Amino acid sequence: MTRNLDQSLGYPEDLPADARDLWPDLARWPTPEDVVCFMRNTRKTPHRRLAVLNGLRSWAEIDIAPVWAWASAIVTISIAGLGVAVTTSVWWVQILSLVVTVVAALVLLTVTMSLSTTADRRRRSAHLWLRAFESGL
């Protein structure tokens, strides 16, 4: 399965500013030259090396809290929409409520899937780069 690889995965928000130039391009696979260059550029600045490795470690971990938050929003909207449809006796309000509920749930589902696939791609890429850098140490 392929995904849109044009989207930049960026870097962690809390990555120190002086280590951002060392952050790898997660959109591609690491090469031996990348590892050698990283080791050479961080030989005299171990704090920058540690910052990049810690950033990769944090991104390599699975974080499903945002996915659960979006899933709970889908359930909440669905329950609210069904509640309006059940409690009202006007037929067009019931239909409108169900249509709005289904559309909102589909939009939230699309956003959830997009976030989930981006997070998974980021996690896998960070794991590959982390292993490459650690093997070079």
Rank of each mutant, 00 (worst) to 15 (best):
37 C>Y: 02
106 L>G: 06
109 L>R: 08
99 V>H: 01
59 W>A: 05
122 R>Q: 14
76 T>K: 11
10 G>R: 07
18 D>Y: 02
6 D>G: 15
107 V>L: 14
97 S>D: 01
48 R>L: 12
124 R>S: 06
83 G>R: 04
22 L>K: 03
11 Y>N: 03
84 V>R: 11
98 L>V: 04
89 S>W: 06
17 A>M: 10
90 V>L: 14
28 R>E: 09
91 W>N: 08
37 C>T: 13
39 M>G: 00
91 W>L: 09
18 D>G: 00
47 H>G: 00
41 N>H: 05
136 G>S: 09
8 S>H: 10
85 A>D: 12
61 E>Y: 05
104 A>E: 01
33 E>M: 03
17 A>L: 14
64 I>E: 09
50 L>W: 03
127 H>K: 15
39 M>E: 13
121 R>T: 12
63 D>Q: 12
26 L>F: 12
44 K>L: 13
87 T>S: 13
12 P>V: 09
72 S>L: 14
10 G>L: 08
110 T>L: 13
124 R>K: 14
30 P>S: 09
2 T>R: 11
122 R>E: 14
15 L>A: 06
40 R>M: 05
67 V>P: 00
65 A>R: 15
108 L>P: 06
87 T>A: 10
87 T>C: 10
45 T>P: 00
46 P>L: 05
53 L>D: 02
22 L>D: 10
16 P>L: 04
41 N>L: 15
55 G>N: 07
134 E>G: 00
48 R>I: 01
9 L>D: 08
131 R>C: 07
104 A>N: 07
54 N>M: 07
121 R>S: 10
117 T>E: 13
30 P>Q: 09
107 V>D: 06
44 K>Y: 13
113 M>A: 14
74 I>M: 15
96 L>N: 07
71 A>C: 06
105 A>V: 08
18 D>H: 07
27 A>R: 15
113 M>K: 06
112 T>I: 10
124 R>D: 07
105 A>Y: 04
120 D>H: 15
108 L>R: 03
86 V>Y: 11
23 W>C: 03
49 R>I: 01
137 L>Y: 07
94 Q>H: 03
64 I>F: 08
114 S>H: 11
85 A>F: 09
12 P>N: 10
74 I>P: 04
90 V>G: 05
102 V>Y: 05
7 Q>K: 10
9 L>V: 04
69 A>E: 10
116 S>Y: 15
5 L>Y: 08
65 A>Q: 13
112 T>C: 12
2 T>G: 09
68 W>C: 08
135 S>G: 03
67 V>F: 03
85 A>Q: 10
133 F>H: 00
107 V>S: 04
51 A>P: 01
103 V>R: 02
91 W>V: 14
106 L>H: 01
48 R>M: 04
116 S>K: 07
103 V>M: 10
69 A>D: 11
55 G>T: 02
131 R>Y: 01
69 A>F: 09
30 P>V: 07
125 S>G: 15
23 W>Q: 02
57 R>Q: 10
16 P>V: 12
92 W>H: 13
134 E>P: 00
58 S>N: 11
90 V>P: 00
37 C>M: 06
